[in-house]
Design a protein around this nucleic acid. Structure first.
Length: 769
DNA sequence: GAACTAACTTAGCAAACATTGA
DNA sequence: TCAATGTTTGCTAAGTTAGTTC
């Protein structure tokens, strides 16, 4: 790592950048922190960024402000954009995907696949195509041609590893013929057929896709069959006794207007129904649903009284809670039935769980943070809005009677089963598979392999960006400083966003001047940067960190002549950054740093914290601490649980009791000592010992409680789940469990074990990320 | 190369469910 | 047994990224 000495690179000319980057973001009006409560500043302090690799170096003094040449002209990041998700686009796409139109399923059977088919039956399902392993060679089915093209920017590493296994697998094929499916544990296939549902499930779950070859042609599947989505239940008008009042008088609303009104009524207890934007948006959209009569009558939202409706819904949900066991059971069974019928698909010979097979019901949109569209009506999705994706030769899902799908297409370059365009942002929503599915698992695995490749070249990349801090070109310096933040602080890339369309949040590349403060000196530290901005989901990121002098100086330079609302990195955006990263390493993007730093931190922390003579609970505590370190790094916060204070109080009571116990015990010990002093006999000596032990024991218990309290307190606003699920290479955890004899169930619950089945199966105790 | 779009991952919240303990 | 408390799951918003179009 460079010693960072001065440098001479200064080419003058700085004046312009600010003016360059004039953009007006009228957003700043409310400086108010809509920030989630002042979370975690404390925690942050506690967990000083541990990335030892990049400890700040004290630089040799110096340098007057460098002035740099700007690499290029344009810097304005225009925000004006047109929304208009419209037919044109649709058309374009349609053409592109030469979608074959709604082919009526030839056989017109009423159920696409039968609920109780055994795996064996499933295998036969795609008629022309059974016994295929999902490797392309075996495929004879597909109606499309699959060219071996892309996919090749995929991690070599993955491939190798994969190939290794795949090869191994191949031998097995050779030896015992086909059986692309499960390594038969003990059952033969024929037996499977005979066996019941349960074992079928077991078998399905055990499918080790990770031992098979992957597609290399960019296709995601060869065969896909499903039943389509489940729609939201139709609106049921309110009973007549439930009234809506306008201006104090009861008023019967038309069904459409009433439905939208109920959405509002259901949210009445939420604070946001008091917010101006929410009310305004709601009111506007509500009016669209009203009859002209209603429109003319209802002219002021403030005169609307929804409380009767609100009470009704509360009573309903209360009644639901009070339902008898049988009734509850019935509902449960119905849900189970739906799940069985619609919750699975067949993809390439395997029955796979669908992640979200229910269409989102209509309601009022509530974005996160200060969202300009909060309160808008999220409209009901009908079959006519849905695009179905499945294979041509599958039994196509049937739309509900009397309706049609918008389109049925057969695109195996994508993983989704159905999609629709949502009306708030005009974005597309998808129905996709569950994380336990092959298609998601492979991708996940690959993600961690990419991060591991980064591990191998991260030093080089760090050296490179440190060099780039000295570049003559502004854009390069900005890129290098941004990358440093992304690496050191695990910031997100930070795409530009359309103003007024979403909450005002930023990531690294979109940081604005107002989001950082520079302190040449703060307490006993030099070159401190203070970050304060709203990130994804409007979660506040607040952090003060000392940076290397050169970074600091660069930041000062970037800030020159800029307004608070100007971009800090006016010569940079995520696209530029990612293109650069791609050059540094195949498959490298900004988010890989997050994955890499999260995983490597977990591994390091586990190494540091784990202790062989710890009890299992103590080990788990260590694990959670390591996990927490990552969550803090990634700024994964949560609202303190509603019951937090109370549960803390309870704990505190216990602690207090323990403390009383302790002081009582101490008194007794003291007394015993005095007694012994007086009598000097054996008996009193023993008594002293006994009391001493008691004190000790209580002290320990007290300490445990206090640790628990600390632990809980520390976790108050930190969410461990997100990192566990998305950033931490599960093999690290699996290996750790194996190494320290901790049952995997203590670390991963059932769902998580399903998602990480591949890791659980393949990682040994010596696995190194 | 900016703008736009599709596809997919990441995220926190709250309802549902499970467990604990009075 | 029931309420309190803790955990899991479902939901869907909000990101990132790559690809396409203009």
């Amino acid at each position: 790592m460079s010693g960072d000495h001065g440098h001479g690179d200064s080419q003058v000319n700085s004046g312009s950048k600010a003016s360059d980057s004039h953009k007006h973001k009228d957003k700043h009006k409310d400086k108010e922190h809509r920030h989630k409560d002042h979370r975690k500043d404390k925690e942050r302090e506690k967990f000083k960024h541990s990335n030892s690799e990049h400890k700040d170096h004290s630089e040799k003094k110096h340098r007057d402000k460098e002035k740099l040449k700007h690499g290029d002209g344009s810097s304005d990041k225009h925000r004006e954009k047109h929304k208009e998700k419209d037919k044109d686009k649709e058309k374009r796409r349609e053409e592109k995907i030469k979608s074959s139109h709604v082919d009526k399923p030839k056989k017109e059977k009423e159920n696409g696949y039968v609920r109780d088919i055994s795996p064996a039956a499933i295998k036969i399902e795609p008629e022309e195509d059974n016994g295929f392993s999902h490797s392309p060679q075996h495929n004879k089915t597909s109606k499309r041609e699959y060219h071996d093209e892309e996919f090749e920017n995929k991690p070599k590493k993955v491939k190798t590893e994969h190939d290794k296994k795949a090869k191994k697998r191949k031998h097995e094929y050779e030896e015992d013929e086909e059986d692309e499916d499960i390594k038969p544990k003990k059952k033969t296939k024929d037996k499977k057929v005979a066996e019941g549902k349960k074992s079928k499930k077991e078998e399905e779950e055990k499918w080790k896709w990770w031992e098979e070859e992957r597609y290399t042609d960019g296709s995601k599947w060869r065969f896909l069959e499903h039943k389509g989505p489940v729609f939201a239940p139709m609106y049921e008008p309110l009973p007549d006794k439930v009234k809506f009042y306008y201006d104090g008088k009861p008023m019967k609303l038309s069904a459409p207007a009433e439905e939208v009104a109920t959405f509002f009524a259901k949210m009445l207890d939420h604070e946001y129904t008091t917010k101006d934007i929410f009310r305004k948006n709601f009111y506007k959209d509500w009016r669209k649903e009203m009859t002209s009569e209603e429109k003319s009558k209802i002219t002021d939202l403030n005169k609307c009284n929804f409380s009767d409706m609100s009470e009704y819904f509360k009573a309903q949900s209360e009644a639901r809670k009070q339902m008898s066991k049988e009734e509850k059971q019935k509902i449960k069974e119905e849900n189970e039935r739906l799940l069985q019928e619609y919750g699975f698909c067949i993809m390439d010979n395997h029955k796979e769980r669908i992640g979200n097979f229910r269409i989102e019901p209509p309601g009022l949109f509530r974005g996160r943070g200060d969202h300009p569209k909060m309160g808008m009506l999220k409209r009901r999705i009908r079959p006519e809005d849905i695009i179905i994706n499945c294979s041509k030769d599958s039994k196509h899902p049937k739309p509900p009677p009397g309706t049609k799908w918008k389109e049925v297409r057969h695109d195996n370059k994508v993983t989704w089963l159905a999609s629709w365009t949502e009306n708030i942002q005009g974005s597309i929503k998808y129905i996709m598979l569950n994380p336990s599915s092959r298609i998601k698992g492979e991708k996940d695995w690959q993600k961690y392999e990419t991060a591991r490749r980064l591990k191998k070249c991260v030093d080089r990349i760090r050296n490179q960006y440190r060099e780039d801090w000295k570049s003559k070109e502004m854009r390069i310096r900005q890129r290098a400083v941004a990358l440093y933040f992304i690496d050191k602080l695990a910031l997100r890339a930070g795409n530009e966003k359309e103003e007024g369309e979403t909450a005002d949040t930023v990531g690294c590349c979109s940081l604005r001047v107002e989001h950082i403060k520079l302190y040449p000196k703060m307490d006993d530290q030099e070159y401190v940067v203070e970050f304060d901005f709203l990130g994804k989901d409007s979660i506040r990121y607040y952090n003060k960190i000392p940076v290397e002098k050169r970074v600091f100086k660069n930041l000062q330079l970037f800030l020159e002549n800029k307004q608070p609302e100007d971009d800090l990195f006016d010569r940079l955006n995520t696209s530029i950054l990612n293109k650069h990263l791609q050059e540094l390493m195949d498959g490298l993007t900004a988010k890989v740093f997050r994955t890499y730093n999260a995983s490597i931190t977990l591994q390091q922390q586990l190494k540091e914290l784990s202790c062989s003579d710890d009890s299992i609970p103590a080990k788990i505590l260590s694990y959670n601490r390591a996990n927490r370190a990552v969550a803090i790094l990634c700024n994964h916060q949560r609202a303190p649980p509603k019951t937090f204070e109370k549960s803390m109080q309870n704990l505190q009571t216990k602690i207090d009791e323990k403390q009383n116990q302790l002081s009582a015990a101490r008194k007794q010990l003291k007394a015993a000592k005095a007694d012994h002093k007086a009598s000097h006999d054996d008996k009193s000596k023993k008594a002293v010992e006994v009391k001493r032990k008691a004190v000790q024991r209580i002290e320990e218990q007290l300490m445990k409680l206090q640790v628990q309290a600390t632990d809980r307190e520390e976790n108050k606003q930190i969410a461990l789940g997100t990192s566990k699920l998305n950033y931490l290479d599960p093999r690290i955890s699996v290996a750790w469990c194996k190494k320290w004899g901790v049952p995997i169930e203590k670390i991963y619950n059932k769902t998580q074990r399903e998602k990480f089945a591949w890791a659980i199966d393949m990682a040994e105790k010596d696995y190194e990320f």
